[in-house]
């Protein structure tokens, strides 16, 4: 089970099973939190992260648990954060839209559309100035490519040859607005040309395609060749926000996407090509399920943050009561 493909599948499974559990636990009311489902988009961060180490940085967005899990954020601390507990990655103060976990390189999670990109540039700039080999990845959606910050960031990154990957997870919708009703470019990757930057569109449901594109981009970034814009086409299976009724979608669109579920498809490919056996993968999936059980239990049984936390972390010093 050494192959990079199996490693990518492990990350995809981690995302899929956690997403399923998040939705179930939140629907049961055991955790009360807004939740932006990631099911369907597993292949993208799984394949990108297979090219990264803990030294590499990411900035992600509200729809980001897949990016976090793929990058290695420990499940217990992630679950505890989403449960708003003191044992969470951010002591329960940030919540699902603001997970930070520097040990695995998750430096910022933003709830503001477009804001992952400028900050990823800064992470990359620091690495460049210090002569480190780190790269930074900015994850964002298709809708975010229409915010000024996207354009400013691409220009600056290209101008300064920053070691950054702009990874656009194009799931066809920004909230309830379909891609073509909001975006003038036929392909988001076309916009790279305007900034003299490498740009590529890949099938975001094909882990091998994403892996290859990310590998090339990471090598370019690490060797001083500058940034890359990767547009990975995908679909979100459970709408914008958990509870979304999907009435704004084209008829049959979601069903078609779900029939093309990247996770079982890749699983079958791994077995057919001799990268793993059915038994290997079943054992892996069962192991992840157990870890999730433990993470949920840990989150639910953890204490709430103390109200004094309102006075801590506002500044370096604690505010007086």
């Amino acid at each position: 089970m050494k192959s990079v493909y199996v490693d990518i599948y492990r990350r995809m499974t981690l995302i899929k099973q956690n997403d399923e559990r998040f939705r179930a636990v939140i629907k049961l009311g055991r955790i009360i939190s807004p939740y932006y489902p990631v099911r369907g988009q597993e292949a993208i961060p799984a394949a990108v992260s297979a090219n990264l180490t803990n030294d590499d940085y990411i900035c992600t967005i509200y729809r980001g648990v897949h990016d976090m899990l793929a990058k290695g954020v420990p499940m217990r601390a992630l679950w505890a954060e989403i449960a708003g507990k003191a044992t969470g990655t951010c002591k329960g103060k940030g919540g699902p839209m603001h997970v930070t976990h520097p040990a695995t390189g998750v430096m910022v999670t933003t709830g503001i559309v477009g804001s992952s990109m400028p900050i990823a540039n800064g992470l990359a700039l620091a690495a460049q100035i210090r002569g480190e080999k780190r790269v930074a990845v900015a994850y964002f959606g298709d809708g975010a490519s229409n915010i000024g910050a996207f354009h400013e960031s691409l220009n600056m990154a290209s101008l300064w040859k920053l070691p950054v990957l702009f990874v656009c997870q194009n799931n066809g919708y920004g909230e309830h607005t379909r891609y073509e009703l909001a975006t003038s470019a036929a392909k988001i990757s076309d916009r790279a040309a305007g900034y003299q930057m490498a740009g590529v569109t890949v099938d975001g449901n094909d882990p091998l395609a994403v892996y290859a594109a990310a590998k090339e981009a990471v090598e370019r970034a690490r060797s001083g060749g500058g940034p890359t814009l990767i547009e990975a086409r995908t679909f979100r299976f459970f709408g914008h926000l958990l509870g979304d009724a999907d009435n704004y979608m084209k008829k049959g669109e979601k069903e078609a996407a779900m029939a093309n579920d990247p996770v079982p498809k890749f699983r079958a490919w791994l077995i057919a090509n001799g990268h793993a056996t059915e038994a290997d993968l079943a054992a892996m999936e069962a192991g992840i399920e157990k870890e999730i059980d433990a993470a949920v239990e840990f989150a639910l049984s953890s204490p709430n943050p103390d109200v004094a936390e309102l006075r801590r972390d506002v500044f370096a010093h604690e505010l007086s009561a």
Binding site: I32, S33, G84, K85, C90, G92, K93, G94, G95, P96, M97, H98, N304, P305, V307, E309, L310, R311, D313, V314, L319
Partner: peptide, 16 residues
């Protein structure tokens, strides 16, 4: 409200 960003955790949000 308390002088801090709006906190996520329910008991903190309520206290805020």
């Amino acid at each position: 409200a308390s002088y801090c960003p709006v906190p996520f955790s329910k008991p903190l949000e309520t206290a805020f």
